[in-house]
């Protein structure tokens, strides 16, 4: 049971979030937590639930459901929601966590970063300064690694050099990047930092940058080395999205993980045309950790299950 100040902090954050979005006429929505299918991302594991004799999945984020609402004409929307990810437990991870997700119509990721700044400043009730660095620049600055030229072997060597006791030959190019980012590069970040323009291989559901096909219009917000938010210029191409789902399932199969049916409702919606928009998910538990200056996510959970 967290101290009363933590409960009050959470209540205040939620209240301010609602006030912020009310002022910019963004609609609050509440989508189902149980779905007939789920996220195919190879690095995100879903929790299955047995419901009325069939298997449903607790949603790993409200993204697909919210995009269906956008297609149906909802206009800009936001949601405060619980999300579920199996096998994620640690000082910064909890299998059930809270997030704020929102979509701003007509925005791209750059405009969305400014909106994130506005919201965060509002929540902290002060003028904050935000640093910005591109993903490639951060690797160049803190590891002297040029990601446009670096081979998989060079990335593995860089891991061996910086991370103690690891067999880097087991790691793919993206595995190396994930490890170096979370353990070395992000540790150099001070205060609020936007990391933007991710490598195309880490595009997830982001649009590829026009004229720079090796980059994805994706950003993350860090506070020191803590990842707080992840946002994109949203991919609106149904064909490309279907291809990414199929690739995900292929990777899952190779990794010996369960594969999931493709979310046809979501793809059908995309085919009808997702309006140009940018969306972002912000981890609320971690945000409250930063506000409360505590080191463990377990210190801010309301009635911690784990």
């Amino acid at each position: 049971m967290p101290a009363l100040p933590v409960l009050k902090q959470r209540a205040l954050v939620y209240k301010k979030i609602r006030a912020f979005f009310d002022e910019i006429s963004t609609l609050e929505v509440d989508t189902p937590l149980l779905g007939i299918t789920t996220n195919t991302d190879v690095h995100i594991q879903s929790i299955a639930a047995r419901v009325c004799s069939s298997t449903l999945y607790l949603q790993t984020s409200p993204e697909f459901a919210m995009k269906r609402l956008l297609v149906s004409g909802s206009g800009s929307i936001y949601q405060i929601s619980h999300a579920f990810r199996d096998e994620e437990k640690g000082l910064l991870h909890h299998p059930e966590f809270s997030l704020l997700e929102w979509y701003s119509l007509g925005f791209d990721y750059q405009a969305l970063m400014s909106q994130v700044e506005d919201l965060i400043s509002r929540l902290f009730e002060q003028e904050l300064s935000f640093h910005k660095i591109s993903y490639f620049e951060s690797f160049h600055r803190y590891l002297k690694l040029d990601l446009q030229l670096a081979s998989q072997t060079e990335c593995q060597d860089c891991v061996t050099q910086h991370i103690p006791g690891i067999d880097s030959s087991l790691l793919s190019w993206d595995d190396c990047l994930d490890l170096l980012m979370s353990q070395i590069v992000s540790r150099e970040f001070k205060g609020f930092t936007f990391l933007y323009d991710y490598p195309e291989s880490q595009a997830s559901l982001a649009r590829i940058k026009v004229g720079e096909p090796h980059l994805a219009e994706r950003f993350e917000l860090f506070y020191n080395d803590i990842e707080l938010a992840n946002g994109f210029s949203e991919l609106t191409d149904a064909k490309q999205q279907r291809l990414r789902f199929l690739q995900d399932n292929c990777k899952r199969q190779q990794a010996g993980l369960q594969t999931y049916p493709i979310d046809e409702d979501f793809l059908k919606a995309l085919e009808q045309g997702l309006p140009e928009c940018a969306g972002v998910a912000l981890g609320l538990d971690r945000l409250i950790m930063v506000m409360q200056q505590v080191n463990s996510i377990h210190d801010v959970m309301t009635l911690d299950t784990f």
Binding site: D41, H43, I44, E87, E88, K89, G90, L91, L92, H93, I163, P164, G165, I166, L171, S172, D174, D175, L177, D178, L179, M181, S182, Q183, Q202, S204, E220, E227, N230
Partner: peptide, 28 residues
Amino acid sequence: EFVKPGKGQAFSRVKIRNLKNGRVLDKT
């Protein structure tokens, strides 16, 4: 220590003691 970027590969960073010589190692 569980380590994972939101959309990336998860790792375990482990401090481990060799019971024969008492030495503590960092492994990932």
